[in-house]
């Protein structure tokens, strides 16, 4: 027996008591598929995985319905890209990886095919409308980094604004001295990077087209008077990950909406 392993076994007395002392830890960790299913049941993850499996099944059926297919070449491109990105360049390394995943090459291919089908389905259902919405509502995708100070009375807000314009105190100092907003107080007033569309319309109107560093104040909102400073504007850009997030959201909504629909009704 490996002396290190011997030490491990000695220290894990509970394991030692339950098992043959001649069996290694790696052998102990061998789990059959049956045991895996049992584990998922008693760790309360069965329903979560069932939902995912149902979603996958729905993707396949909808793709059949819409005549969406994936070619072997497309799967090959995605598979090769995955291997390149994960440094599985050699066949032997890939086979070892498949073994570790407890799947066959065929299982992996099916998984890739399913992902591609899901992408194509989302694209088929929502791609054009997502792009068209973006092109027509680009301003909603404008991101800005903002700091804010929230106070309850107008006069204090005006005093803070004057201090900021005079440069006698920093925004951070004034936020720590006066701000009543718990979320941003600890960050010296920094609100974060947010989409313009997430802001109340009166705030949007006040900050749009204003240069970086501008102090916007005071704006009356439900909770009091807010003083904003524009930290940075970000170029509007429809990055892939944003688009994928939107497609996923639409897909989830679509599934809820059509939960009780028949394929023929879709």
């Amino acid at each position: 027996m490996d002396p290190n392993l011997d030490f491990m076994v000695m220290t894990h007395s509970t394991i030692k008591q339950q098992t043959d002392t001649q069996v290694t830890l790696s052998q102990l960790s061998t789990v059959t598929d049956q045991k895996l299913v049992e584990y998922l049941r008693y760790s309360y993850r069965f329903s979560e995985l069932t939902a995912l499996a149902e979603a996958a099944d729905l993707v396949v059926k909808l793709c059949q319905h819409y005549r969406i297919d994936v070619s072997d070449e497309e799967c090959q491109v995605v598979g090769d890209r995955f291997r390149l990105e994960h440094n599985l360049l050699e066949v032997s390394a890939t086979i070892q990886w498949l073994k570790e995943q407890r799947i066959t090459l065929s299982d992996w291919s099916e998984g890739i095919k399913l992902k591609l089908l899901e992408q194509k389905l989302k694209e088929h259902l929502f791609g054009a409308s997502v792009d068209a919405h973006y092109i027509s509502h680009r301003q909603e995708y404008q991101k800005v980094a903002l700091s804010q100070i929230l106070v309850f009375d107008y006069d204090t807000a005006l005093d803070i604004k004057q201090s900021l314009l005079a440069g006698t105190k920093s925004f951070c100092t004034l936020a720590l001295e006066h701000s009543k907003d718990k979320q941003t107080y600890a960050n010296g007033g920094f609100l974060g990077i947010i989409y313009l569309s997430q802001l109340a319309s009166e705030v949007q109107k006040a900050i749009i087209n204003q240069p970086v560093g501008t102090i916007i104040a005071p704006i009356q909102t439900t909770f009091g008077y807010r003083i904003f400073r524009i930290e940075k504007w970000f170029p509007i850009e429809f990055k892939d990950f944003i688009r994928e997030e939107i497609l996923e959201t639409l897909w989830q909504s679509w599934r809820k909406e059509h939960k009780n629909s028949k394929l023929s009704e879709i």
């Binding site: 791609g127 054009a128 792009d131 068209a132 973006y134 092109i135 680009r138 170029p235 509007i236 850009e237 429809f238 892939d240 688009r243």
Partner: peptide, 20 residues
């Protein structure tokens, strides 16, 4: 000009729209 990054390069939002 703010749309430059949506116009330039492959797989831009304008490209997808023109492709359709």
């Amino acid at each position: 000009l703010s749309a430059s990054n949506d116009l330039r390069g492959p797989n831009s939002v304008y490209q997808r729209t023109i492709e359709r």
